[in-house]
Amino acid sequence: MKKEVNYSNEFLKGLWDINPVFKQVLGMCPVLAVTVSAINGLAMGLATTFVLVFSSLIVSLIRKIVPNQVRIATFIVIISTFVTIVDLVMKAKFPELSKALGPFIPLIVVNCLILGRMEAFASKNSVIRSLLDSTGNGIGFMLALIVLGSIRELLGNRTIFGFQVLPELYTPMLVMILPAGAFLTLGLLMGLSNWYVKKKEQEEIELIFSGYRSATTLNTQTELN
């Protein structure tokens, strides 16, 4: 029996349905620490996505060779190889960015998001599905980081991606680019997303109910006829 595979869903689910930051709540250390500006969020998101996609590719390729007992060790070796590559390339070609992201690039190795995707998806699925899944998750992670970084940069420094958005009249709220601001912003965004999801669910239930109601009235009418 051939399994029906919805490829576009494999990619899209990472953006919202299982968004690494808002739904899985994974990789909180970089999310909170590096999002002082939108550009830092973008860079961290890109680095993580790169590591995620390539580790997924390799893990999925060798998933049938790796013995179950040493799978975690293998994943870690593969992930750390790619992280070291990112770290070296950044140091060589983008020294400014590497300085700004500091110790967080090497720490991608222990980002639960990456090991989580390896364990939960790439080690069990085909190469194409793993690539789609990891790209979706990586981009979902990156978008969340950019949103968080933009909000914090805007309120704490008047700018987004370095461009001044708010007028001089606005006194920047320093707390937003301090660690406390990261927790506040993330908490409020998560609250907002949960509120939206709940509202949507409620609407869906209402829809099903109303559909059921009209169906029953229709049924009774036909019965009467």
Binding site: T171, M173, L174, V175, A180
Partner: peptide, 10 residues
């Protein structure tokens, strides 16, 4: 505390 962290100079 929020104001202290947000506007430490003022």
């Amino acid at each position: 505390a929020f104001l202290q962290a947000a506007f430490p100079v003022q």
